[in-house]
Each structure stands twice: as C-alpha cells, then as structure tokens.
C-alpha cells in the first residue's frame, strides 16, 4: 500500500482550501522531523491533526506558524506561496496560533496579553504612548464577542483558571482578522466543563468562517468536532480522511501503523 492511496482523492474544488502544505520536509540535524508532508485545511472547517508523540504534528504547525522554516516543500496560504521568516510574518498573513503553553504572560493583564506586540499607540510628536483605554475597550469587545467567561480584562492572567487562560489565548487568536487558527492540544489540560466551553469556542470560530487546524490526542473529540483528519506517524503524513467517511478505529489504526503508511 502506498502513501498516495491512503490520501483522499484531491479535495474536490481548491477554491476554499485556505492552507495547502505541499511536501514539507524539515530536519533538525540528523533527525528528520518532517518528510514530504502534504495536508490541507479549509475555511469554515475544523481540520484535525493526529498522531503519536513525536510524529511531527507540532513541528508541522510550527512551520505553518512561521516558527520553523521548512527545508523543502511549499506552504500555500490563501492561494499564495508563503515565505515566513518569523511568527510575526505568519500573524501578518492571518495565521494565529494558540500554543500548547498558551504563550500568555502571567504578570500582565488580560488586555495586555490580548494586545501583546499589537499594542495600540497614540503618537504625540516623536513619542508613541500606549492607548490603554482603546486597548481595554477593544479587549472587552473581543471577549464579549466570543461570550467568553473571562473576568475583568484588567485582571492579571496569573489569577485566571486554566479554562479562562485558554479562552484568553483563543480570543487573541480569533481577533485581529485572522483566517487560520492553529491550536495545539487546546483541551489537554482542562476539566470536563472547561473542555466543553473551549469546544463551544472552537465551533463558534468555525461558524465565523475561520479555518481551524487542531492538534488533538482525543479521538472522540476529533470524531465529534472535525471535518477532516490528517494522521501523522514518524514525520510522515500517513493518511487523510473526511471525518464523515471514517471511524475512530480506522484513525487509530492509521496512528499506530496497523493500517497504511
């Protein structure tokens, strides 16, 4: 069985394919982290990326997010080839990432985190001072737009619960007119109720037309939320399925190598 037969027939029209990774490879020294990985992600869909630890999922999304640069292969975003030199370039293009560690600064407030490195400033001649009121107001809008249960935007992140922190990170990724939101195990550290709230958020982002690329270890969650699943093993993409056309058992078989690859 070859790799190609396991991949679904080219995803019908390419019109709504937002992210298109083609044969992306990356090595760290002698370790081949990614080998010719090709995946796609569509607007208004939740795309799941599954695989065992060390399969290369995080490395792949870090390439998309501009943290790593692939050795070879192409990443097309919104129809154009990308060449990100930094996470900032990717954010400029409309790719936001909710990192596994959330990338929040605990000692700063919610609004400071939402606007971290995106601060709104007022120019007074040569000096640019923070427009704190504008950022607080915008933050309140961002938080209430997603109906997130985050306390006052002026509270420090240190005081928030795990679910609230996740919500702040997702809020930040959803704001600033992003098109693709990458989430690295968004509910791994959360309890049942908090997981439900974060899933609601993910669905709301999908309904708003975002493309979501979600790394998850929770197969039940993947089957419930996603439209498309890509499976990675040992740095390769060993299969892709429309979620509606597959079963949890098949995905598990692909992950473990009992099937395909």
């Amino acid at each position: 069985m070859t790799q190609m037969t396991d991949r679904p027939t080219p995803d019908t029209p390419t019109r709504d394919v937002l992210l298109d990774c083609r044969d992306v490879s990356l090595a760290f020294g002698n370790v081949q982290a990614l080998v010719d990985v090709s995946i796609t992600s569509r607007a208004g869909e939740i795309t799941a990326l599954v695989g065992d630890n060390g399969a290369g999922k995080s490395t792949l999304v870090r390439c998309v997010a501009g943290i790593h640069r692939p050795d070879s292969g192409q990443i097309l975003f919104d129809g154009a080839a990308t060449n990100f030199h930094s996470p900032e370039d990717a954010r400029e293009a409309g790719i936001e990432t909710v990192h596994q560690n959330l990338a929040l600064v605990e000692d700063l407030t919610v609004w400071q985190n939402l606007f971290l490195n995106r601060e709104i400033v007022r120019r007074l001649g040569p000096v640019a001072l923070l427009d704190r009121r504008a950022m607080r107001d915008r933050s309140r809008e961002m938080v209430s737009a997603l109906a997130v249960n985050v306390p006052a935007v002026g509270s420090r992140v240190r005081r928030l619960s795990g679910g609230q922190r996740q919500a702040v990170a997702i809020c930040r990724a959803a704001g600033f007119s992003s098109k693709l939101v990458i989430m690295d195990e968004p509910t791994a550290a959360l309890g049942v109720q908090e997981t439900a709230r974060v899933e609601e958020l993910i669905l709301r982002l999908r309904d708003e037309g975002h493309a979501l690329l979600v790394i998850s270890h929770n197969f039940e969650q993947v089957m419930r939320l996603s439209h498309q699943v890509w499976v990675m093993r040992a740095g390769r993409c060993v299969g892709g399925r429309r979620t509606a056309d597959t079963t949890g058992e098949e995905i598990v078989a692909l992950v473990t190598g009992a099937l395909g690859g």
Partner: peptide, 16 residues
Amino acid sequence: VLATGGAPESATAMGI
C-alpha cells in the same frame, strides 16, 4: 520588557 522578563517563550511566540 515586562513580557521578556515574565515569560520569554511567550514573548517570542508573539513575535517580540
């Protein structure tokens, strides 16, 4: 400056 001191990885991830 505060972000760099408080959480360097987070600051880097946000492009600082």
